[in-house]
Design a protein around this nucleic acid. Structure first.
Length: 139
DNA sequence: TTGTTGACCGAGT
DNA sequence: AACTCGGCCAACA
């Protein structure tokens, strides 16, 4: 993979400061990161769900693209809790080690089989549905 | 500026 | 069930 933009800095010097016309959303990276950081421990979500919860302006692809910078931001975004709609650890190859993502998830009590979450339906967390009390624990 | 590429998604073949 | 294709928006060559 090549280099990726950094949300903290202006990626393109040509249009530096141009896209920041609206400071309320900031970089779309931050929007994604903010949602990902809300993911409770032991839960996961999908790129599409994040894109939708972030405000439709983003697509699932953008979420994945944004996650590219997840490893270099300070608050440390739990990117390992983000999988695709099938519950497959599609981004495992982008971690320090291909097995790191799986180990982190297992560490949180998530069962993984063949690079995909076995109890995906149980541990799935919808970032948009905050109305839920989350009082029920899956563990 | 145009074109290609993505840690995706869902429908169609 | 496996594969292909279009679409979404942003970054890069």
């Amino acid at each position: 993979m090549k280099k990726y933009p950094n949300p903290k800095e202006q990626p393109s010097s040509t249009n530096a400061g141009k896209q920041e016309t609206d400071s309320k959303s900031g970089s779309f990276f931050e929007v994604v990161f903010k949602i990902v950081r809300k993911i409770p421990r032991g839960r996961v979500t999908s790129y599409g769900a994040i894109a939708e919860a972030s405000g439709i302006r983003l697509t699932a692809r953008m979420v994945g693209w944004a996650m590219n910078g997840a490893g270099r931001v300070k608050p440390a975004v739990p990117a390992h809790r983000v999988v695709n709609s099938k519950g497959i650890l599609s981004g495992k190859n982008f971690f320090a080690t291909p097995t790191l993502m799986q180990e982190l998830l297992e560490q949180e009590g998530i069962i993984i089989k063949e690079d995909k979450i076995a109890n995906f339906k149980d541990v799935f967390w919808d970032p948009g549905a905050k109305t839920r009390k989350d009082s029920k624990k899956v563990l």
